[in-house]
Design a protein around this nucleic acid. Sequence first.
DNA 1: ATACGATGTCCAGCAAGCTTGACAATAGGC
DNA 2: GCCTATTGTCAAGCTTGCTGGACATCGTAT
Lengths: 64, 64
Amino acid sequence: MKNRLKVLRAERDWSQQDLATRLEVSRQSVNAIETGRYDPSLPLAFRIADVFGLTIEEIFLRTE
Amino acid sequence: MKNRLKVLRAERDWSQQDLATRLEVSRQSVNAIETGRYDPSLPLAFRIADVFGLTIEEIFLRTE
DNA sequence: ATACGATGTCCAGCAAGCTTGACAATAGGC
DNA sequence: GCCTATTGTCAAGCTTGCTGGACATCGTAT
C-alpha cells in the first residue's frame, strides 16, 4: 500500500520527527510507514489524514 | 472506532459469512470488527470500502 | 574538523489483527 | 419435535504494527 507521506511532509517542511510528534507515534513508525515497511493501523491512518487535512483515500493508494 | 458494517450488510441482505467471503477474511474477523472488538487493518478497510462502493470515511467513524 | 539534524535500519519486546476450530444460543422452516 | 442458518464468543497460534534504544550515513553549518 503506497502513500504520499514524503511529499505531504515536504510540502509542509516537516521532518519525520515533526510528523511523529503531531501523530503521537515514534519516529521509527513514521519512517517505516513512509518507506513502505508496513501500513499504519486504521486509527493511525485517520490521524494522519487529520493532520494533513485530507481523506485517507487522498493519502494512501490502492496499489495491489 | 465505530463502523456502519451491520447496517450496510443489512441493506444488502448479506450475512457475516457473505461479507467475509467477499473480503476474503474469516467470519470471526467480520464479527470482531462489527462488534467493535478490534479495528481492521488499513488494507482490509480499503477492501471493505470497495465491496460496499463507499469511502473509508463513510463507513468508519472517528469516535475514538 | 567537528558538531548537529535528518534519515534509514536493526533489535527485542509488547499489543493488535487475523486464523482455524470449536461450542452455545437464537430464530425460522419443515 | 428436528434441522439449518446466523450470530456471538472463546482459545491458541501466527503475523503485523508500534515501541525505545541504538548505531551508521549523509549534508550542512560553524
